[in-house]
Computed example of a mutant assay.
Amino acid sequence: MRIARYVAYGGEPRYGIVELPEDAGDHPDTVATISGDPLAGPVNYTGERYALDDVRLVSPVIPRSKVVAIGKNYAAHAAEFNSTVPAEPLVFLKPNTSVIGPGEPIVYPPETSDLHFEGELAIVIGRICRRVPAERAAEVIFGYTVANDVTCRDLQAKDRQWSRAKGYDSFCPLGPWITTHLSPDDAGDLHLTTTLNGEPRQDSETSLMVYPIPRLIEFITSFTTLLPGDVILTGTPNGVGPMLPGDSVSVSIDGLGTLTNPVVAED
């Protein structure tokens, strides 16, 4: 199942089930409206349906408390910065105010001159959880989506910690929807690509993560409680690089869709 948040004809954001041609359904390329919040409990179809081309997709989830992100989780990415893989997952936080959706602009702040894209697989948490063993990680996962861990590379080096460099408003694009039918093993074996203005930049597999999805959940929940709607960014592969105002960056993960955002200068 693919769950999106969308806006139709200037209305308020609503949840819907995305129906694509590969689903072999009767209504391809549409979104069927559902009532309520799927992260909060059961939902029902309302009977409304819109063509995907007629709605504007927004972030499929607004984290209720936090985005937990993982650094250096691909050996090739660590190597491209002359770094080593950490002995245990390297965790940092992004504020929930950094989250934007598909098509929304990544804002290039005046404090940086080296803004980078980082395409990533994101996990959406579905229930309150603490100290989850790896073998039970699937029980707390609601689904998966595509992310871009936008980073001011120069501020990251200057500050020697990552809160400002990765925490600006608009620095956590998510979308286009949440895919709920994958197991951690399935999500841990997907093809990820990033393009800048249509030119390939990143091309890798989530199977190359140093710490797989169950281990990440076990580690994160060993020190903090995760809430429904919290998001985990699982790290980026090699090939990250700069982007400028006027550019367009797209992150694609097989089976999860493509997340595209323009880059604009801050007014």
Rank of each mutant, 00 (worst) to 15 (best):
D114S: 14
K72T: 02
F117I: 11
Y50V: 00
D203R: 00
R64T: 13
D254E: 12
D254T: 05
S59H: 08
T180M: 00
T145L: 00
V210M: 15
V18N: 00
I123M: 09
I128F: 01
P105R: 10
M243T: 09
D23N: 12
D254G: 04
V146N: 04
A157L: 15
I141K: 05
S222I: 15
E139Q: 11
R49K: 11
S113I: 13
T194V: 15
T33M: 10
P28C: 04
I62G: 10
E205P: 02
D37Q: 08
A51E: 11
D23E: 04
P237Y: 00
A137D: 12
K66N: 02
F142D: 06
N238Q: 14
M209F: 14
V132E: 09
L192P: 09
A187L: 07
I106G: 04
E205T: 10
G198C: 04
M243W: 07
P63W: 11
P242A: 10
I62R: 14
L259S: 01
A265T: 14
Q161F: 04
D54W: 04
G198K: 05
P38F: 01
T206R: 08
L259G: 01
R127I: 06
P89G: 05
R130N: 01
T194G: 10
A40C: 12
I3F: 03
F142Y: 13
A137L: 09
I217R: 03
D114Q: 14
T30F: 00
S113E: 13
L227S: 06
Y211L: 08
F219R: 13
D185P: 01
L216P: 12
T179P: 09
G235M: 10
D247H: 15
G257E: 00
N96Y: 11
P102H: 05
T234K: 01
V146T: 03
A157F: 02
A122Q: 07
S248M: 12
K166M: 08
I123P: 00
S250R: 14
A137H: 03
G16S: 07
F223W: 09
Q161H: 15
P102A: 00
A122I: 12
Y15N: 05
P242T: 08
N82P: 12
T151V: 11
R127H: 01
I253D: 00
T195D: 07
L256R: 09
H116F: 05
G126Y: 06
R5Q: 07
L115A: 06
V85L: 15
E104C: 08
K72S: 04
S252A: 15
E104I: 09
P38H: 04
G167H: 11
G11H: 06
Y50E: 02
N82K: 13
A134M: 05
P102I: 03
P184T: 07
D54K: 11
R215A: 15
F142E: 04
G41Q: 07
D53V: 10
G25S: 03
D247R: 15
P42G: 01
R2M: 02
L39R: 03
V146H: 04
A79T: 08
P262W: 05
T97V: 07
V264E: 15
E118M: 10
Y6F: 14
L52S: 05
R153W: 00
P212W: 00
L233C: 02
I125N: 03
T206L: 03
E266R: 15
D114I: 06
